[in-house]
Each structure stands twice: as structure tokens, then as C-alpha cells.
Design a protein around this nucleic acid. Sequence first.
DNA 1: CTAAATTATATTGCACACAATATTGTTTTG
DNA 2: CAAAACAATATTGTGTGCAATATAATTTAG
Lengths: 142, 142
Amino acid sequence: MEVLKLKNQICFPIYALSREITQLYGKHLSELDVTYPQYLVLLVLWEHDTQTVNQIGEKLFLDSGTLTPLLKRMEAKELLTRKRSTVDERVVEISLTEKGLRLKDKAACIPSQMFDEMNITKEEVDAIRTITNKLFAFNNKK
Amino acid sequence: MEVLKLKNQICFPIYALSREITQLYGKHLSELDVTYPQYLVLLVLWEHDTQTVNQIGEKLFLDSGTLTPLLKRMEAKELLTRKRSTVDERVVEISLTEKGLRLKDKAACIPSQMFDEMNITKEEVDAIRTITNKLFAFNNKK
DNA sequence: CTAAATTATATTGCACACAATATTGTTTTG
DNA sequence: CAAAACAATATTGTGTGCAATATAATTTAG
């Protein structure tokens, strides 16, 4: 049954690579005392401060079941604040603290370090982007 | 700070795609009552029955902290058995049960279904394989 | 204007992942 | 051969992910 052999799986390498990447990031992020998903939240907020849980979730494809406790941990570390909107009490607005904002400078070198360590070419980066975008499409259709 | 923008991240699409894939698999695997990581264990065992926890872990890049409870859940579902080796008492040998073996037939159609749903070409499959193999190298070097 | 539908977040429960440590068994070494 | 080193699995603790459900606030329909 050739199709069921591990070496013929398309998705397993993506699954395994994703975990490897998270670990590799971890080595850099431990200095900032954040995890990879927490770093992604910071990226979103550094780009545009003060967003709702929903807005962050849409960008990272994560739901409240994941984000609520994650954001609470980040709040406990004083990287951000969680505040109910006065306009719409259902909404929780997430804003960076001074500490969360300052981490941006320390993080600035991480992308290039990762690039170096992964020993990847610009062409391969483009190829990955093309394919992952294409594959995302199957789901975004719905 | 252009390098810290989400859209310029190389690894985020892989991370997000990996989760999407797991969910897509989930829809097929729920009929077999297994999760994606459990399905991967089955793939390994279908290919070669009776392996140690270590051997399974090396193929899937998972350690005992993940595998031990996962295998216990699969044992509880009577998909496999866990037995201490008589030769070396440290080793636990994992073997398929009749039920675990039978699932192989039901699983046979999943790869082609996934392929169809993802709407991916053979060329793209090759491209993914090439890149993921390349990127794995950075870590396997060590 | 109020009941019903919708929306935003939170909670619960389960299953990974993985680092760190513990436990037990086997090998190696002096 | 006994102590030390090593190896295989288990345990613990923390942090995701996500489905399903709950709660509370807002909007919409009639």
C-alpha cells in the first residue's frame, strides 16, 4: 500500500517542519521570555497597536479558546493589557504595554538570524510563500 | 520595521498551514476515531509492525513525553498493544491489534481524498518535498 | 419596542508538544 | 564484579490548539 507509506506523505513534512521551526524560534525567543505563538501576537500588535481579540485571531487563524488564555499569560507578564471596550462591552481590546513595545527592538534581529540558521535562499522563500498561499486557498474558499 | 511584519514572515505560513492540514485530516480521521498524530503512528506500524517507542519516535520526530500518553490512548482504543521486551526490560514494544490492522483498509482512500481537496499539483507536491527536506537539513546537521 | 438571532469572548474538556526530571534496566570500566 | 555511565521509557509541568458550549451584549425582525 504505497500511498500509506510515511515517505510518500505530503503533509507530514509540513507538520514536522512546523514543529522544528517552533523549536528553533524558541531558542531566540527564550531571551525575550515569550513563546512562538506569543511572539506572533506581538508581531500583530507591533504592526498596529490596540486590536480586539477577534482581529488578532483573524490574522493568526486562532480562536478565543487559544487566544484568551494565551493573552492572559501575556498580560500576567505585563506585555499587554486587556480592556473591555466601553462602546461594545462584548469586545476586549488588547494593547501593548511599554514593556511589550520595548521588546520590538530586541526582536528586530530575530528574522535575519532565523534566515541564516535555516540556510535558505530567497528563491526557496518565494517558493514556500507561493505554495502555502496556494494551499491556504482550499480552505479560504469556504 | 519591515522584517517584523506578519506578511513578511517565512515560518508563519508553514505554522498556519500545518494546523489547517491537521484540521482537514481530522474530518477524514474522525470516522476512524483517531487523531492526526495517532494516524501517523498507524502509518509507521502499518509499514512495519512491532516497533519500539524509540523507533516510532525517531520516524515521527516525537519524544516519549508525547508518545507515551498518545500510545496509551491508542491502547485504550484497542488499536495496539504495549509490551515490555523480555530481552531488554527498558524497551516497550508496540504492536498492532487486529482492529488496528483492519483500519488500514479504511484509511487507504484518505491520501487521494486529501490530494483532491487540497487541489494541489504533482509539481507542487515535489516542490514542497524538496523545500521541507532542505529545511530539515539545518537541524539534522547537528 | 421586545423576542429572537447574532456577535464577541470565555470556559471546559481533551489531545498534543516538549523541556526537564525521574525511574528502571543495561553496559561499561576500573 | 561493583560503581559509574548510559539508555529507554515514564512522569511532571507548562503552553498551546480546537471543538463544543456558555455567557453576556448588541442587533434585527416583526
